[in-house]
Design a protein around this nucleic acid. Structure first.
Lengths: 238, 238
DNA sequence: TCAAAAGTGTTCGATATACACCCATGC
DNA sequence: GCATGGGTGTATATCGAACACTTTTGA
């Protein structure tokens, strides 16, 4: 056993989910490639600055991308394998990007949710920002593919403890069918539309509006909205 | 914003739960005190060595204490606040213990379970090892009190996903009442003894033995055991 | 009038809860 | 024989699963 203690840089990486139609998407950034490893898309992230804690760093990354000051986010796992930086291309990019010699790097992974319709900033250090379907992700640098995989398990946990997180993924006004498709995407199973309706009707913080879809070539669906006031009241009682 | 990136040592800290009678206990170590902050008990932990990942470091800490090679363990949260090392006494102890200059330290917290009857090793760097009731913990260094608090939420999650973890806390042969008291301690609520019995009877991997309590001044309770073979078979089918 | 999706109610089985009495043992 | 905890069964409420038809709208 080498008796030296690990001293290392620490980064945060954010798995930001979006939802459209019937699918979950993950927000990836395209780094300015050096060499050509083919792995040009990656999770947005950053090294942690000296005076920050990890939550602040993740908030900063999210804010840069979305402009939202206080995004909901959740730390879910820290990845520490020395093999993370096994690929030289990955390390070269890091050192170029951060102007620091980097031998080993651990990362604290965060989960966050964002409306897919939101206009995003292209942060200077990246060429583009892209939503990619979670089922068809490209090969990414470091262990980013593994991080996304593990985040999927975590998202269910999150919505069970804090169901209001779900509404981060939906537009302010949504139909029950849209909501059901979101559930189906997250839990990767189907829900009976009738039973689902019944359940929604019982949930007090989901309010029916007097608005209906326009210009659809079938019966127009009713819109609903999430009511945070009622939600918070219920939570206090628990 | 200070543009220096954080470069830091990383430690693991282990919250090891034990169970006796009707209470959860946490395993603490007594450090050889320097100065007298009064905070001489702390969670067992260690800086991570250069070639290790965090799981290996946590396994090493657990192994040193219990002699068990492959203890079940679960990473649950990383604590990164710069304020962790705000107390000079804490930092002095660290630097004395590890012969390293330490300005900032983040820690990856692990959860583990151990039979409270197990004979423990006193690791050289500690004076003693002690089980303390989780409800009456002393003030501990760093953010160890907060870590334990957050671990309690995590333990429920763990036993729901992997119920076999529970049996790490019980002797090989246990009564249904002992098992119920464990549930009550973990979920901090009472369970009806009759309904609990009924539920246990349905669980196939809990096997009744032909052994009963001895020398009790009331009707002797039957012993049961956990059957891992049946447990694994069921799991595969899920 | 047809296609496409919205909306609605009932039945059934499984599961969780509430609750009361007899049993075995040591003293 | 009594105190102590062990063990059992029944009735009820609740929740989730299965399931079919009518409604609205645009083309």
């Amino acid at each position: 056993m080498d008796l030296a203690f690990m001293k290392t840089h620490v980064s945060v990486d954010c798995v930001i989910f979006g939802f459209d139609k019937d699918q979950l998407y993950v927000l990836l950034v395209r780094r300015n490639t050096l060499g050509d490893s083919g792995k040009s898309l990656k999770l947005p992230g950053s090294l942690i600055y000296q005076p920050e804690d990890a939550n602040e760093a993740a908030s900063r990354v999210l804010n840069e991308l979305t402009g939202i000051r206080k995004m909901k986010l959740k730390q879910f796992k820290t990845f520490t394998s020395p093999m993370r930086t096994a690929d030289n291309d990955d390390v070269n990019w890091l050192e170029y990007e951060y102007h620091n010699k980097i031998d080993r790097l651990i990362t604290i992974a965060y989960l966050s949710l964002c409306k897919i319709t939101r206009k995003l900033n292209v942060v200077s250090k990246y060429a583009t920002v892209e939503w990619r379907p979670v089922n068809q992700l490209p090969k990414m640098p470091f262990d980013h593919n593994q991080i996304v995989e593990e985040s999927l398990r975590e998202i269910r946990n999150w919505v069970e403890y804090e169901p209001d997180t779900l509404f981060e993924l939906l537009p302010a006004k949504f139909t029950i069918t849209e909501f059901r498709l979101l559930y189906e995407a997250i839990y990767n199973r189907n829900y009976d539309a009738r039973n689902f309706h019944k359940k929604m009707a019982q949930i007090k913080f989901i309010l029916p509006l007097d608005e209906y879809q326009q210009n659809v070539k079938h019966r127009a669906a009713r819109y609903y909205k999430f009511d945070r006031v009622t939600y918070n009241k219920q939570r206090i009682g628990m």
